[in-house]
Amino acid sequence: MKHGRLHPLVMIALVVAATLFGRILPTWTLSLATVAASNALIALGIVILARTGNVSFGQGLFFAAGGYGVALIANAWGVTDAVAQMVIGAVCGGLLGLVIGPLIARYSGIFFGMLTLALSMVLYGALVKSSALGGSDGFNVGRPSLFGMVFVDPREADFMLYAVSVVTTGLAGIAATILFRSELGLASLAVRENNLRIEYLGISANRVITINFIIAAVFAGASGAFALMAQRHIDPQFAYWTTSGEFVFVAVLAGYQSVAAVFVASLALELVRSFSNLYLPNTWQLVLGVFLLGVILFLPRGIGSLWIREKRKRSKPAAATPAAVRKGVAL
């Protein structure tokens, strides 16, 4: 461990513990945790992309691509295995990202965000008009299985989906942690801060953005597969802008500095939504808005800044006199 960083094996142990924890969770929290894990997965992709300074307001595009891809293949060829469906969703999202990424990486800031939003709404419009895909009503899919096992008991079925989504999101989180510390991860932050200087250093900012974009699309596609498995129904709402907005909501809550923050933010959002919906059914959106405002006001760099800031403070050396000062160089 360095500066409080967790070893990947410790992270794997945490994922296993979180999965087993599902055995003692009340049934109603299993589906909530499954949705939270699924949303965390797509929000994690947005955070990975945001580290290059670009926010996608249209991740619903890949979310829907993953969901529809899985639904069509499941109904056509009877693929019901949850892991296979997750992989199919990831591949569908990734392939679409591979096509769009290199084109969109040339844009930045608000143009980048609006283009992603526009593309997701184009897909939404096409899905609504497509009678072959059920139009605005969408269509249903069967119950998922796992390695040939069919879960008839609802509690067992919920736990299976919880376990697959937590393990997938957890492994994605470990991969993201490794990515954040890697050459590409550091270059992503550099692109975010100064994409001209990085070109002068011989690194293609467009390539860095494209790779992060494709990773985000893969995560979004897998997340779409989980949403489909949880609802056993798909409709164009998957690609609608409010769906994308919810994922950005989680990413903003989390900030871009910590993977763990994405899981905390996603769970916090689901809890706030569930309880405010239960106790304040007519004003739950207001509660969510106030919650987000509170985080932006007091933690402008997201929930992750709570412990990242502390880590920085701990690792800062005591007031040392730099050699440059001692040798008379201007500071």
Binding site: E183, L184, L186, A187, V208
Partner: peptide
């Protein structure tokens, strides 16, 4: 900052797993 600059000197693609 210097590590990013060093990464830019390699003709290969940036690693997504090798620590920066």
């Amino acid at each position: 900052n210097l590590a990013v600059a060093v990464s830019g000197t390699h003709p290969r693609a940036l690693s997504f797993h090798s620590p920066a």
